[in-house]
């Protein structure tokens, strides 16, 4: 469903050689349909950038990003809007529209598609119940906790019934119980809706709990790929250092 072919991405940096700093370097991989694929790596390894590239929120310097066989890297902004409207994105800090209520946030995508008010209201009620937040429609994002905000963000991303959902650090900043709730929710929603899910995270427990497929990103490259078991048994020193959280090893700590 998603395939990346030789994707590279860099950002302007006056201190770097050539005036650009490479974030992702010639990355290629495939994400199986209806899977939960976790991209793991240390902070600043380019995980979120990779996710944003797949969601069409930033443009690659080179390479192809195929979603259902269509290369989004070469699409116009308008064509990208059509692709994006078929996907869901859960941002690290929720990114809820703070001037809208929880209900308006969840129903936003449907409202933009000019769906009837009754259909929007029904979808909002259903999605909020699904994420365990019934009756919160009239609250504003500033009136709910961080964990609730993440669940509202999930409800918003899923309200339009997307085939593909991107999660950016869905459990960061949450207590272990709430992190477990979010992990279970991702698994449950995949089972119910059959969505393809790409989750960026550095929480080992979350990753091993829910992932069908794991990619380890380090130094702008994919250094390991496989199932949770394969990753755990990997003899890559980078993977082992990441899994054990050891301060010594090939992963340089700045």
């Amino acid at each position: 469903m998603i395939e990346l072919r030789h994707v590279s991405y860099s950002v302007p940096d006056k201190k770097a050689e050539g005036g650009r700093r490479t974030i992702l370097d010639d990355i290629s991989f495939m994400i199986p349909e209806k899977s939960i694929t976790c991209i793991m790596g240390i902070s600043g390894s380019g995980k979120t950038t990779l996710l944003r590239l797949m969601a069409g929120l930033v443009r690659a310097d080179s390479g192809e990003i195929l979603i259902n066989g269509r290369d989004i890297a070469s699409m116009s902004e308008k064509e990208l809007d059509n692709i994006r409207s078929e996907t869901g994105f859960v941002f690290q800090y929720g990114a809820l529209f703070d001037s809208l209520t929880v209900g308006e946030n969840v129903g936003f995508g449907l409202e933009q598609r000019r769906r009837p008010a009754a259909e929007i209201a029904e979808a909002v009620t259903e999605r909020l119940a699904e994420v365990g937040l019934p009756g919160t429609q009239d609250l504003y994002p500033s009136e709910i906790s961080g964990g609730m905000g993440k669940r509202v963000a999930m409800a918003r991303a899923l309200a339009t019934a997307p085939e593909l959902v991107f999660y950016d650090e869905p459990t960061s900043g949450l207590d272990p119980v709430m992190a477990g709730v979010i992990d279970d929710l991702i698994v449950r929603l995949r089972e119910r809706s059959g969505t393809t899910n790409v989750v960026v995270s550095h929480h080992i427990e979350s990753i091993l709990h829910m992932a069908d497929h794991i990619l380890m990103l380090h130094g702008g490259r994919i250094v390991a790929e496989g199932s949770a078991k394969e990753i755990q048994n990997s003899n890559s020193p980078v993977v082992q250092q990441f899994l054990t959280g050891s301060p010594t090893g090939p992963i340089a700590v700045a």
Binding site: R52, R84, S85, T87, G88, F89, F97, F166
Partner: peptide, 17 residues
């Protein structure tokens, strides 16, 4: 404020210009 809290990106992610 919308830009730094990723609300603008949230719009784009939903296909809203």
């Amino acid at each position: 404020s919308m830009r730094v809290t990723e609300q603008v990106d949230a719009l784009r992610s939903m296909g809203v210009s």
